[in-house]
Structures are given as structure tokens and as C-alpha cells.
């Protein structure tokens, strides 16, 4: 059976000087939480926006395959895509104010989503809005209907965004760094909420983050992105137990783990930064930062299998040594 969202070899270009996404492949199964992780500039948001067909002007996408529930997303007209968006696929952004209109009340914005896609009366839509706001942990939801976005705190606005994204019972929720701008306590509350919704509604979630702590706690499977490519894919526990790509290993070594940190011992780190990759580039994009790089890394790199659902893009053979105690 094919995945709910199935992307193969996605390419995204802006202008043509450098490629933002270079052959990324990503599968999200029905009902799973799938995390897309990587440093900033790796192409996570551009990947999400290509799925929604919301790329900024000048952005062009191409792929071998890009299908959602069996529908080919690439061949949909703008109108057909607009019928899917906010309906069967919803997206929430890092900064809720980018998708809430400051001039309209919370109630009218939420109701509009439902009446546009599913019809029905405004009263029924408002009732559903109240029900969903209660569900995402907003106190006094009736009062919120009449409020404007700027009257809510950041955490409440993000909850409103989630409730709004759920108005039409989507099958897939694409969440781009939904908690990065929030305090840790609010972040924990929002992530817990997403986990509950996934469990109770069977919602599939593509969660984009740069935080490996979040990945560990909420993901079923993980795709690690580097310089526009997905360089490693694995079930979560396996990725943390035996990461294979040197980039994944590097990322994991950078994270200070509370209760296990040793002060006076330096943290692991990855030297340098994500490079901009121009057209005609060949070989491994990580080689400028990789301590294992040699001449063969300038040639085409094979995708290697490290488990039945675990693969990675590196010339090195898999290694299953016990991970070092952090």
C-alpha cells in the first residue's frame, strides 16, 4: 500500500542560481507523526510549502512523484488544490500571525474555513469552532469567538491555529515549527495536544522542527534533511539508537542532555555551516563539514540500507556499534 503522502525526488528552484530542495524523498503514512528535521536553511519549509503549492513567487517545484491519498498533487489545477488545502490537508506555521487575519475575529475566521469547504450554516460552523477550541485546551471558547488575534497570547494564537486547521477533519496536518516561537511550558502543552489529536482522530502529522528533543518525544518516524536532500530516514527509536549518517551523528552530539551534561567538557559540534549548493554540484553536500570525507565523496553517493525501514545517503557502510554514553 502506498503512503498517505508520497514524495519522490522533489526539486525546488528559486531563480536558478541555487536549488533549495534537491531530490528529497519523503513518505508520511496514514495516522503517523513524521518529523522532518535539519538545520535552518536545509529546505524544510520549502518542502512543506511545495506540498501545499504555496511557494513564494519565482519558486518552481518538480518531482518524480508527489501524491496525497492516491491523488497526483502536481497535476491539480489551482482551484482543485484550493479545495484540498485547509480541508483534507491543513498547515500551521511557526508564526501564527502569518495566517490569522488581524482584521477579523477568531470566530469569523474559523467559521469561514468550514463554510467555504463544507457549506452549512454559520451557526453550525461557530458551534464546531467552540467545540474544537475546547478540545485544544482554550478556556472560555465562546468569549474567544469575538476576540481579534492580537488580543490573544502567543500560545493561545497557536492553539487557535490548530483548532482552525482541524475544522474540516483533515487527514494530514503539516506543522512547520509550530512551537519554535513559544515558551517551553507552552511548547510542551501544544505538543502534548498534537499527540492526543493524532491518537484520537487518527490524524497524520508532518512535523517540521530543528529540535531533536521534540523529534525523540513525538515522532514515529524521522527524515533528516541536509542541504535540500533527505540524508537519513528511520523509525525514531532506531535513528537515536544507531544513527548512520555523519550529519545525523553530529546533530545528536550537539544537544546538551539535562541530567547528563558534563560541565567543563565541550559539547560535540559540527564545524562550519550549511553550504549553498549551485547547479551542477555532484557528490555529498556534507563533505565540507564531514570528518570522514575523502575523494570518493565527490562522486555520486549511494543510498544505503541500515534496516528494513532505515536508509541513508553516505559512502560509509552501516555501523551498529553501541552508541557512546552521552
Amino acid at each position: 500500500m502506498s503512503a498517505l503522502l508520497d514524495i519522490e525526488d522533489l526539486e525546488v528552484m528559486f531563480g536558478g542560481r541555487s536549488a533549495a530542495v534537491r531530490g528529497a524523498s519523503l513518505q508520511v503514512e496514514k495516522g503517523e507523526t513524521h518529523c522532518l528535521v535539519g538545520e535552518s536553511g536545509c529546505g524544510k519549509s520549502v518542502t512543506a510549502l511545495s506540498i501545499m503549492n504555496l511557494l513564494a513567487r519565482g519558486g518552481r517545484r518538480a518531482a518524480k512523484r508527489m501524491s496525497f491519498a492516491g491523488t497526483d498533487l502536481l497535476s491539480l489545477s489551482d482551484r482543485e488544490m484550493a479545495r484540498l488545502r485547509g480541508n483534507r490537508i491543513s498547515m500551521i506555521f511557526q508564526e501564527p500571525m502569518t495566517s490569522l487575519n488581524p482584521a477579523f475575529t477568531i470566530g469569523s475566521q474559523m467559521a469561514e474555513v468550514l463554510t467555504r469547504h463544507k457549506g452549512g450554516s454559520r451557526t453550525a460552523a461557530l458551534e464546531r469552532a467552540v467545540e474544537l477550541m475546547g478540545r485544544v485546551g482554550i478556556t472560555a471558547p465562546e468569549m474567544r469567538l469575538g476576540q481579534f488575534p492580537h488580543q490573544l497570547s502567543g500560545g493561545l494564537r497557536q492553539r487557535v491555529m490548530i483548532a482552525m486547521a482541524l475544522m474540516c477533519d483533515p487527514e494530514l496536518l503539516v506543522a512547520d515549527e509550530p512551537t519554535t516561537a513559544l515558551d517551553v511550558t507552552v511548547q510542551a502543552q501544544i505538543l502534548r495536544l498534537l499527540a492526543t489529536l493524532k491518537r484520537e482522530l487518527g490524524l497524520a502529522i508532518l512535523l517540521i522542527t530543528h529540535d531533536l528533543g521534540i523529534v525523540a518525544r513525538v515522532a514515529d518516524r524521522v527524515s533528516v534533511m541536509y542541504a535540500g536532500e533527505v540524508v537519513e530516514r528511520a523509525p525514531t527509536a532506531e535513528l537515536f539508537r544507531s544513527p548512520q549518517h555523519p550529519y545525523t551523528r553530529g546533530l545528536l552530539s550537539c544537544v546538551p542532555v539535562p541530567g547528563r551534561v558534563q560541565r567543563d567538557r565541550p559539547l560535540g559540534s559540527i564545524p562550519g555551516v550549511v553550504p549553498a549548493i549551485g547547479p551542477g554540484f555532484a557528490g555529498c553536500a556534507f563533505r565540507s563539514r564531514c570528518s570522514h570525507a575523502d575523494a570518493s565523496c565527490e562522486r555520486e553517493i549511494p543510498r544505503r540500507q541500515a534496516g528494513s525501514a532505515h536508509d541513508y545517503l553516505c559512502r560509509l557502510a552501516p555501523e551498529f556499534s553501541e552508541p557512546q554514553p552521552a
Binding site: R192, R217, P258
Partner: peptide
């Protein structure tokens, strides 16, 4: 402290 999400798979997100 509870809301710190350490990179330990399988522990879920705690109710703080």
C-alpha cells in the same frame, strides 16, 4: 524542568 524535552525516544511529552 518537566517541559525540557530530552532526546530520549519513547518517553512522550509529559503533562506539566
Amino acid at each position: 524542568l518537566q517541559s525540557v524535552l530530552t532526546p530520549e525516544p519513547g518517553r512522550g511529552v509529559p503533562d506539566i
